[in-house]
Design a protein around this nucleic acid. Structure first.
Lengths: 150, 150
DNA sequence: CCAAATAAAGACATAATTGTCTTAAAATCT
DNA sequence: AGATTTTAAGACAATTATGTCTTTATTTGG
C-alpha cells in the first residue's frame, strides 16, 4: 500500500534522525543499518536531498544530514516527497454531475486517504525514535550509539 | 495509494451491484459505463470471476453477475482480491529483536493499514449505491435504469 | 445445425518501478 | 598539489503494472 521507495525513505530518515547528533552519515552506513540495497538507497537519498529534506556533503567525513530537527519532519513530509498521496478531489471519471460532490465510492476512498494523510501528518520522526515507555526501539541500530555501555 | 486495477475493479463491482436486478451485463457495457479501457477491463473481470466475486456467462444475453448480493460484498473483499493490503505483522528488516513487537515506524505504518482495512471492511457495495439522502448517486449510470421516466 | 454473441485465453506492447554499475565531481587531509 | 573519501549523475537491466490485440471456446436463438 506504500511503495518500496517510500518504505526505504522512511527507514533512512528515521535512522538519520536517530544519528543526527553524530553528524553526517554515509550512504553505506545508512544502507547497512536499514538493510536497503546500497546503490538504490543512493538514488533515494539523492531524491531526499533534491526535495530539501536532507543535505548531502561530499568528501571525507561527509554523508547525509537532516535539514531540520526530527521534531519538525513528519512521516507525511517524507511520503509526500517521494510518493505523494493523491487525494481524490474531482471525479476520476470526469462526470459533470460529480463536479461538486463525489459519488459515494470516491467519497469513501478519499475519506480513507484523508485518514491516512492525517495519521502521517501527526507522526514526526522524533515520535519514531523517542519512545519513553515503548518496549522496543525503532530498530536495532536506534540509540545504539547513545546507550550507556553498562 | 490504491492501484489502477483496484480502482477499475471497484467501479465495475459498483456498477454490477447497481445493475444486478437487470441480470448479466457485458464487458462492453460495463467498460462504457465505468470509462475503463474495454480489453483491460476484460482481464480485470476475469480475475474477479476467478476469485469468486463474479460469475461469467458466455453467449447471447451473457456477461457478468455478482455472486452475492451487494450487502454481502465489501470494498475490502474487492481490494483484497485484486491487490491485497499487506499488513505488517513481522519486522520487514527481519531483526530478531523485533520478533514480538514492531518498531515504532512499522507499528505506525501498520496502524495506518489497519485503519484503511477497517474502513474498507465496513463499506459494502450496497452502501455505495443506496444513499437515501446523498446528494449524488454513485455515478451517472447508477439507478438510471430504475428511475421513474417522469 | 448454423450464425451470432459473448467470455476465456494468451500473445504482444508500453511504461513505471526497482535495482545495478560505472564514471565524474567535490571535499578533505596530509 | 595529490591521494582518498564521499556524493552526484547517468547509463543499463530486470520486473511488474497497465494496456492492446487476436484467436478460441461456449452459449443462445433461429
Amino acid at each position: 500500500m506504500i511503495s518500496q521507495t517510500a518504505e526505504y525513505s522512511l527507514r533512512a530518515m528515521a535512522y538519520l534522525a536517530d544519528q543526527m547528533p553524530q553528524g553526517y552519515r554515509s550512504t553505506i552506513e545508512v544502507a547497512t543499518a536499514t538493510k536497503v540495497p546500497t546503490p538504490y538507497l543512493s538514488k533515494v537519498l539523492k531524491r531526499l536531498v533534491d526535495i530539501g529534506l536532507l543535505k548531502g556533503q561530499r568528501g571525507p567525513g561527509g554523508g547525509f544530514l537532516l535539514m531540520r530537527t526530527p521534531e519538525l519532519i513528519t512521516v507525511w513530509d517524507v511520503v509526500d516527497a517521494v510518493e505523494p498521496i493523491k487525494r481524490i478531489t474531482t471525479c476520476p471519471l470526469q462526470l459533470g454531475s460529480h463536479a461538486k460532490v463525489l459519488c459515494p465510492l470516491h467519497r469513501k476512498l478519499d475519506n480513507a486517504l484523508a485518514q491516512l494523510e492525517k495519521a502521517f501528518r501527526e507522526t514526526s520522526l522524533a515520535d519514531l525514535i523517542n519512545q519513553p515507555g515503548a518496549p522496543q526501539p525503532l530498530c536495532d541500530f536506534v540509540n545504539s550509539q547513545r546507550l550507556p555501555l553498562s
